[in-house]
Each structure stands twice: as C-alpha cells, then as structure tokens.
C-alpha cells in the first residue's frame, strides 16, 4: 500500500511539474474562460431584463461557465499529455517497473486536481472582485470548488482514455469540437425555461452539461437548492465513475505486459 502511494505521489508530482512548466498549456485554460466570461456577461448583460430571468446580474448567471470550460481544457491537457507518454515510450518505461497501471492514471488525475482547485479559486476570486454575490456564502463557494474538481476529474479521465487509446495528441485535440458542442447546446447562456426554441430546450434538457452548470449556478444565484445540487453532484459522480473506469481500462490496454 505504501509502495502504491509512493508511485501515485511521484507520478502526481511529475504530472503537476510538467503542467506548470508549460505555461502555454495552463494559461489558455484560465484566460479563455475569463475572456469568454467578460465578453458574454457584457454582451448579454441586458438579458436579465427578459421577464422571469432568475437574477439581475448576468455575470452572476454566467460565472458557472468558466468552471466547466476550465475542465474542458484540463481534459485536452491530460489527454495530450498521456498521448505523448504513449508516443515517446514513457508508458513502456513505466510498465517495466513494478508500478501498477492505475498509479499512472491516479497520478495524472491528482495533478489535474491541483490545477483544477487553482483555477476554481481564480474564478471565484474574479467573481468576487467583479461584484458577484454568492448567495450560498463561503460554504457554497467550497461546494462549488468540490463540484468543479469532480467535473475536472470526470472530463480529464475521458481525456486520459482518449489519449491512451489513440496514442495521438492530434486525435485528442480533434475531440475538442465535440466537447465544445456539448457545452454550447446546454443552458450555458440562458436558463432552460427561457429558451424559446423547443428543439434547443429539448437538447439542453437531455444534455448533462446543463445540470452541471445549473448546480454551480444555483449556489451563486439561489442559495441552497437541494434538487439542483443533487442533480449536479449525481451526474458529476456518475461521470467520474464511468470515465475513471474507462480510463483505467484504457491504461490496462497499454500496460500490456506478461
């Protein structure tokens, strides 16, 4: 057990070091969501005047988005990192040590966790500075960080799975538009009841991303909404379970040894 924790610890350290030394991979994951937040909260500011809009600050409404977007970037990062490891033979080097395959996965995810906590904290601070009132207070902010981290781990595991299976950074990057589509076809920019096009509202209702956004959003603009939180956490935890399982199988596929 102690051997395993050493392995996970060292691999987590490596994942973190590698990420921190590539500012080009971490800065966009903070900057793009913030630019997007600024442009949308500015451009759609008056949307709060739509009858029944749940808050009078579009910024407060939209601040849920960066948390999910950052997870998207983390996914791409983890996926390309792992693909690189497959390509360079680093995975084979690890496979020749007594290391367990899952130590690589959990090490990678531990690195994601650290980055994810950092970016969540950044978004919270930006929100506070920009004047967002978090209705659920400090405890709510902690819950937001927990949820954002779960989302980060779930999506990153999908990234690890893609990277392990394909062994190609380009193949991982090629999936970005798909994630992007999931993000946009949700209640990202408008509360679901206020989406007037039926087809769009239907898609947004079936899109799990909507509930992730809405759980975070409820903590900002409503306070403690048990239903939204149950849905958000339920989906996040289910995603974590499925994607970690998938990633672990993908690692095992590459960890071929007798």
């Amino acid at each position: 057990m102690s051997a395993t924790s050493t392995q996970v610890g060292e691999l987590a350290r490596r994942s973190l070091v590698r990420t921190l030394r590539q500012p080009a991979s971490i800065i966009p994951s903070l900057l793009f969501p913030l630019v997007f937040l600024a442009l949308n909260s500015g451009g759609l500011g008056s949307a709060t005047r739509i009858p029944d809009f749940p808050t009078d600050s579009y910024l407060a409404f939209f601040i849920a988005a960066p948390f999910v977007q950052a997870a998207l970037f983390a996914t791409m990062g983890a996926g390309t990192d792992v693909a690189k490891d497959v390509q360079t033979g680093f995975v084979s080097r690890l496979a020749l040590t007594p290391t367990r395959g899952n130590a690589l996965l959990f090490g990678q995810l531990a690195g994601v966790l650290a980055v994810s906590l950092f970016s969540s904290l950044t978004f919270l601070v930006v929100g506070l500075v920009a004047g967002v009132t978090f209705e659920s207070g400090l405890p709510g902010m902690v819950v937001i960080m927990v949820l954002a981290t779960l989302i980060g781990i779930a999506l990153s595991s999908i990234g690890v799975m893609l990277g392990m299976r394909s062994g190609s950074g380009e193949a991982v990057q090629g999936m970005f538009p798909l994630f992007f589509v999931f993000l946009f076809l949700s209640s990202l920019t408008m509360p679901r009841p206020l989406i007037e096009q039926d087809w769009f509202r239907t898609i947004a209702t079936y899109n799990p991303v909507s509930y992730l956004l809405e759980a975070i959003r409820s903590l900002v603009i409503t306070g403690w909404d048990g239903r939204a939180l149950a849905l958000g956490f339920g989906i996040a935890i289910a995603l974590v379970a499925v994607s970690v399982f998938g990633a672990s199988r993908a690692v095992r596929m590459r960890w071929t040894r007798t």
């Binding site: 759609l44 949307a47 739509i50």
Partner: peptide
C-alpha cells in the same frame, strides 16, 4: 469540415439558445 460546420453551429446555437432576447423591452 470545421470551416463549414463552425459557422452553422454558431448560427444554430446562438439563434436557438438566445431567441428569448427578443422579449427584452427595446
């Protein structure tokens, strides 16, 4: 493919999600 799909996607996503904006006075 991306250069065809992206504009289409933006069009459908924006016009689909945001048509409620029409209800804003003004």
């Amino acid at each position: 493919v991306p250069s065809l799909l992206f504009p289409l996607f933006f069009f459908t996503a924006f016009s689909g999600a945001l048509s409620g904006v029409e209800a804003i006075p003004g």
